[in-house]
Design a protein around this nucleic acid. Structure first.
Lengths: 347, 347
DNA sequence: CTGAAAGCGCTTACAG
DNA sequence: CTGAAAGCGCTTACAG
């Protein structure tokens, strides 16, 4: 009777603690703790008692205070996801896949966008350091120190999409060089002679590798002209990219195919080609890195080099988990996944 | 000399605590705490001493253990963002804007995708309850109980994009009804007579309101035909939507304009129209809710009803902050923002 | 102007 | 089979 009354009372409280549950069950807090954490054996709790406690937890909707658990165990069950820009289609798809993988193993994801600002990136790492059990990061070059510090502090980290050459931190990458080399080779085989590359200012490894793949392929086919390369200056405005691309294309009228090194450049490029009245693929062939809904739907549909996003997410969470478990302690150096050429109508 | 040695030693430690800093500075932990939290006045710490402590914190890179702070203060400085699907362009843009706003006031964002699964939605709320200071949620109908429980527990919540009619929880919405009414009216004025609506199965308020706007406008113009409405069955596969749309359009060949009630339906719709060889806007006018890069770039560019994403983010964080501060305690009921008709070439 | 002490809510060795 | 106690790293009233 008294117990029922208490149960009723507690049912309407906001913040139950483990002590409250213990009191309701007539046991010590430690007993409740064992049941919560599935350690009935270890605490040698009888099955009946465990069931009784479970029931009370159910009824009251008791949830352990995560801060207290974290303080005590040193685990937060949070993963820090640091990307360039969460609103970018590539990263938001990555975020979704990572969330799915993390959810399955009981982790939540905190995200942060660096916007390629090195200071912000380093700061974010520093701020999250004590709040997450591990990081999945698409690093910009200037984040190297901050990431090395994480490593020194034995904080689990996996780099994704980009990495630091010569630094021993696990990564999940696409083989940018080979993928682009093959993709550009497809342009060459299709008969294009003057193939331009439009890419970002070269300070990210993955972009450098894409460019190398382009150069290597064209050199092998004696079609390489250094002037057919546009390194776009970074700009927060999309129009600025479009303008730079337009100027470049007007300056190189012989260009008969373009390789865009990221999807947002490809999208801007399509806009420009439309403005210039160029027909694809008759006047100009188009190949873009990264797939995007736009490329599937465009007339003509655009041929792309597609990154295996779900697989990247899966591998990165896997590699992170191994580190967090302390299991695969000497984590493998990294893995290289294949990007796939999806041939559509633009070449 | 000894102190320098200690500083050197601590510089290379992983996990400094406030005690370590206190020892290095030769003061009590409480003194350090006051300095960290900018409460020098309250603790009546001399400026010089405060500076000295600051310097040590700088040098060592000490970061307070957030779990301990949270346990003690009851604040986590985390916001829980629960959306339908973070990889959807609308939600990822929202996430980016919310992140920006939150960052400015020292909050991090944990995100979760419900995938419109009520159970998962309720579960996510429950799981995050103790880990975040407040929630920004795009609720599905079945999450009502879970959200009401948050309210009962005085957990700050702001609903965004959708709401629960008749329930007093702050929300940030777009005036779907008026926006669609005006948008469809634009189709009417352009001379279209048989305007279809393609929308989701009606169980989300915002979708109902969009449909009401469509109906209201057409009724006022005596152009409403109930059969010109397609409620798409939910499906995880995009192709299924495309097939349903195709069947519908073939069944209603007189349709001379279509209003798509969300951007992903619009995107699927464009694909279908392309397959059917329909010319836009000559054969069929197109209007879609939500803007998207695809709509800007498509030939012809698609006329849309655009939601003010940045403003929605700003208002929602603002309303949440007021609740978290305990300031604007009797938080305003909610706000209704205007969606903007962006006229392009498809009508 | 500064420090010692209590306590936030847990988990886990330890004692029984 | 169960409970009392220590301690994770902070903050803050309180005493001096």
């Amino acid at each position: 009777m008294h117990q029922n009354f208490s149960a009723f009372f507690f049912l309407h409280m906001n913040n139950l603690s483990i002590k409250d549950i213990a009191r309701l069950a007539g046991v010590a807090p430690s007993t409740v703790s064992f049941v919560i954490n599935g350690k009935e054996k270890e605490g040698r709790i009888s099955t009946q008692l465990a069931a009784k406690i479970q029931k009370i937890i159910q009824k009251t909707g008791y949830q352990p205070n995560r801060s207290a658990v974290s303080l005590r165990t040193g685990k937060t069950n949070m993963i820090g996801l640091i990307v360039e820009d969460i609103s970018n289609s590539f990263f938001s798809q990555l975020a979704k896949s990572i969330e799915d993988m993390a959810y399955k193993i009981g982790y939540k994801v905190v995200y942060c966008s660096t916007e390629n600002d090195n200071k912000k990136g380093a700061e974010l790492i520093q701020m999250l350091h004590k709040q997450v059990d591990g990081f999945i990061i698409t690093p910009s070059k200037g984040m190297k120190q901050a990431v090395l510090k994480l490593k020194k502090n034995k904080k689990p980290v996996v780099l994704i999409d980009r990495y630091f050459p010569g630094v021993n931190i696990p990564y999940v990458l696409v083989d940018n060089f080979t993928a682009v080399k093959n993709g550009v080779n497809y342009l060459v085989n299709a008969g294009y002679k003057n193939i331009s590359i439009i890419t970002t200012a070269v300070d990210q490894v993955q972009m450098q590798e894409r460019e190398s793949g382009y150069i290597q392929c064209l050199k092998e086919n004696t079609l390489y002209h250094p002037t057919y390369t546009l390194h776009l200056k970074f700009s927060p405005s999309e129009d600025s990219y479009a303008n730079q691309i337009k100027k470049f294309l007007l300056k190189h009228p012989k260009t008969d195919a373009v390789f865009f090194a990221t999807n947002y450049l490809g999208i801007q490029g399509l806009k420009v080609l439309k403005e210039l009245g160029k027909r694809i693929p008759e006047d100009i062939g188009v190949l873009s890195f990264d797939d995007h809904d736009i490329f599937k739907l465009y007339s003509p549909a655009i041929t792309v080099i597609n990154q295996p996003i779900a697989e990247m997410a899966e591998k990165s969470v896997e590699m992170l988990t191994k580190q967090m478990d302390g299991t695969g302690a000497p984590a493998q150096k990294g893995i290289l996944l294949n990007a796939e050429l999806i041939v559509r109508e633009s070449v």
